[in-house]
Write a protein that binds this DNA or RNA. Structure first.
Ligand code: ZN
Ligand code: ZN
Length: 798
DNA sequence: AGCACGCCGACT
DNA sequence: GTCGGCGTGCTC
């Protein structure tokens, strides 16, 4: 008898190991590693991943049998199976979480427990069944007495329990028809068909012309063959009805084929070096550092083409906000239908279909956001990460992986190079390139030698003294000028620091969340005050709850408010707004870009998403309204973030014929990140910032770990975290720096108190063991409900 | 995560 | 005495 090793979908420390199950004979031939199955686990039924098959087990208890298969073919490749083990270890997360994140969202399955009642039971217990024979069993929905009742009914077999597998991802099936007749038979049949049966004759003619074709019903309808005709055809035995899977098409528009562009010398060198590594099958990591407009994308495209030409596949990752229809169109125009796209803005059905195209080997090129690094591609020849410094490449919740590390792992497995591209590389990557761990490739010239824009900095401290608008005097004047010249303008509002709250003008009262240490934010659409941390909602007060003043009103600068102000100041200007609210609908993002690109608007304003990847030749003025909002929260990466953003935005303006202008509004005009962004001097920024990182013992000089602990009692949290910090200080070498515990900036969230410990280290062979120990202890002892999470190489220390 | 077992205080 | 509250431990 064969045994399967299974990781069950129960994300806890204690169940983080494979469980052995017997394979029933009926499944023996079909089951494979990487498939999902249903298994009995304790008293319930759960989903699990088959990670191995063998003929024995080390478990000496009584084995249970697998109930059934969830998938008909493996959904996790052998490579990804191995990767999940490594990742769970590296990110201190559960294997099941890693496996689940490798699948497109819609494929994640959960079991829903259902209760089935006879009519009699249903009517005897209306409080439980509400007149229905089948209900969801949510433990939280019932009180203990009801649960006891249900349990008793179950024991006496009066109600049945069954589990329903739920998943959003389903293929779309369309009705289709296939001929059962050969050509001679059709000839024969035609004799008996009346002349006036036009539909039937039409159908038979089509069947005659393409005997082996499967015709979609929609297509037949279009050709004038109606449903009734088809019903007769089925009855007559001319055709059979079948179903055809329809692949959803996430691409809005068809594209025309494009061909490789001529490269300049730098680009050619870059392509040669990368192609060489692809050909030699070495897992070199390249850092492709190229200023905005230096033609990185063309380098990517030609290297990908080379990988395809030797029979390999290619994977290209792009940050969330840069994965625009423009960039996808460019890739599709080069590689056609071989391209699959994985984007969070796609529906779960579209993502499922695209994923299937990859898994079945149809798609050879994958373009996508962070999670696309788990695309089930085989025989990868090249992995590209564009804008490698982008913070969206680090997943903020478990498993907290850094895409760059996963990319390097897959590159090593597939013996292929990784290309990290950026105009402003992360300090980590650049430092590694300096040490020779990565190979540095530079693209120092802007294509066609477009001039750099002129950047000016406006000190908003001075400005505030005589101007209470968001727009500075200088920026307003320039806007007026550009409007007169019929040139276009982009205004960027940094998303961070965005706030929308209400405050009493008399006593200064700001409504706070009752569960968290944070102000409530105003939501105009629902007319409520919401807490974005715990979801608490309450009505907007009309009088101040503290002093009963009626002068309680709304404050905040969001893109909506900015739009109002701009329209106020420039009533004749045509203004477009692009933010999360205006791009929620499918295709709306594209619509805004097309409209602005066609110069049907003068001013485009919005959040981060307008900062990247968009090319509008008519834009000659870019205003950054709150350039330094990242600097408000002092953290070791804030300068880097600010510099990267400003450099990127500045690159947007400035063309061959018209010099661009950038206005940066800030409260910190002398800050080096802002000053160096003005001159677009990455080299100097790199060296300045490295010195600061060195002095502060920050990455890339030190590795870092953030341990966060929370419990309903602040005292308890502080105490337990002190214990952990003490343990780490004793256990680790004296070269490791253990900081804290300190309360988090927002200490209370959802009535839990959060504390953190930071570890900085260079070499700590015992660290992994120590942290695993902390995790194990935290779950076995329960430590008064202390929940621990570990973030390996966190983005920030906040 | 569930789900059951078991021990102790409150109440018929 | 017994009901039910929650802490503890297990799930192939
Ligand atoms: Zn008040
Ligand atoms: Zn809250």
């Amino acid at each position: 008898m064969q045994v399967a090793q299974i990781i069950v979908d129960v994300p806890t420390r204690q169940t983080n190991n494979p469980y052995s199950y017997l394979i029933p004979e009926s499944l023996e031939k079909q089951i494979q590693s990487g498939m999902r199955v249903q298994v009995p686990f304790g008293r319930r039924r759960v989903t699990g991943f088959v990670i191995g098959l063998s003929d024995k087990t080390s478990f000496d208890g009584k084995l249970k049998k697998i109930s059934s298969l969830v998938d008909l073919s493996p959904v996790i490749t052998p490579e990804l199976l191995k990767l999940s083990e490594w990742m769970a270890d590296k990110t201190f997360s559960f294997k099941i979480s890693c496996l689940q994140t490798m699948l497109p969202g819609g494929m994640r399955t959960k079991f829903k427990k259902k209760l089935l009642a006879t009519d009699q039971i249903r009517d005897t217990y209306p409080a439980i069944f509400h007149g229905q024979n089948e209900i969801d069993y949510d433990r939280q929905k019932f009180n203990n007495k009801t649960i006891a009742e249900i349990l008793a009914l179950r024991k006496s077999n009066q109600i049945k329990v069954h589990y329903e597998l739920s998943s959003h991802a389903k293929p779309i099936l369309s009705r289709a028809y296939k001929s059962k007749l050969n050509q001679q038979q059709i000839d024969h049949v035609l004799i008996d068909v009346q002349k006036r049966a036009v539909g039937q004759r039409r159908l038979l003619k089509m069947l005659y012309e393409q005997p082996s074709q499967t015709f979609l019903q929609s297509k037949l309808l279009h050709e004038g063959v109606g449903k009734q005709v088809l019903d007769t055809a089925v009855k007559q035995g001319w055709v059979t009805e079948t179903q055809v899977r329809r692949i959803r098409n996430p691409f809005l528009q068809p594209v025309s084929k494009s061909y490789p562009l001529d490269l300049n010398e730098d680009q050619q060198t870059a392509v040669n070096r990368i192609n060489n590594a692809i050909g030699k099958q070495t897992d070199t990591t390249f850092l492709l550092e190229g200023v905005t407009g230096s033609g990185k994308t063309e380098v990517y495209l030609q290297a990908m083409a080379h990988a395809l030409s030797i029979g390999k596949t290619a994977l290209m990752l792009v940050p969330e906000i840069t994965l625009t229809p423009q960039i996808v169109g460019r890739i599709r125009s080069r590689f056609g239908d071989q391209v699959a796209m994985l984007h969070s803005a796609m529906s779960s059905g579209e993502r499922y279909d695209e994923w299937q195209r990859i898994n079945s080997g149809q798609a050879k090129v994958v373009v996508g956001v962070r999670s696309a690094i788990f695309a089930p591609l085989e025989n990868i020849g090249l992995i590209i990460m564009d804008e490698e410094h982008d913070s969206s490449y680090k997943q903020s919740d478990t498993p907290r992986y850094q895409t760059r590390d996963v990319a390097k792992w897959r590159a090593a497995y597939n013996h292929c190079p990784v290309v990290l591209g950026s105009a402003t590389p992360s300090l980590e990557s650049r430092a590694r390139a300096m040490k020779g761990v990565y190979q540095l490739i530079m693209l120092p010239h802007r294509f066609n030698n477009h001039a750099l824009p002129h950047v000016s900095i406006v000190d908003m401290k001075d400005e505030m003294a005589h101007n209470r608008h968001i727009l500075s005097k200088r920026l307003s004047n320039l806007i007026t000028d550009r409007l007169e010249k019929h040139e276009q303008i982009i205004l960027l509002l940094n998303r961070r620091g965005y706030s929308s709250f209400i405050m009493c003008r008399d006593c200064g009262y700001v409504p706070q969340c009752p569960n968290c240490d944070i102000s409530l934010t105003m939501h105009k659409d629902t007319h409520t005050l919401n807490c974005h941390l715990c979801g608490h909602k309450e009505p907007i007060p009309t009088v101040c709850p503290k002093c009963h003043s009626k002068r309680i009103r709304h404050y905040g600068i969001g893109s909506q408010q900015l739009e109002e102000q701009v329209k106020d100041l420039f009533p004749t200007a045509r203004v477009l707004r692009m933010d999360v609210d205006t791009t929620r609908k499918k295709g709306s993002h594209e619509a805004i870009i097309n409209k602005f690109g066609a110069h049907k608007a003068d001013i485009l304003l919005g959040t981060q998403m307008i900062a990247k990847g968009l090319d509008f030749p008519e834009v000659t003025l870019v205003g950054v309204l709150n350039a330094d909002s990242a600097l408000q929260f002092p953290d070791f990466r804030s300068s880097e973030r600010t510099f990267q953003l400003l450099t990127q935005v500045s690159g947007r303006s400035g063309r061959a014929d018209k010099q661009g202008e950038v206005v940066i509004q800030t409260f910190n005009p002398d800050h080096y990140a802002i000053q160096l962004a003005k001159t677009q001097d990455y080299e100097k920024f790199y060296h300045t910032e490295m010195r600061i990182r060195h002095l502060g013992k920050y990455p890339p000089y030190y590795f870092t770990i953030k341990i966060t602990g929370s419990s309903p009692s602040e005292k308890q949290t502080a105490y337990e975290m002190h214990q952990i910090a003490g343990f780490l200080r004793r256990y680790l070498t004296n070269k490791a720096i253990v900081l804290g515990p300190t309360p988090k900036t927002i200490t209370r969230v959802n009535n839990r108190y959060f504390y953190q410990i930071i570890i900085k280290y260079r070499q700590e062979p015992k660290l992994k063991a120590a942290l695993d120990d902390v995790l194990v202890k935290s779950q076995t002892k329960q430590q008064g409900g202390l929940l621990i999470s570990i973030d390996n190489e966190p983005l920030d220390f906040m």
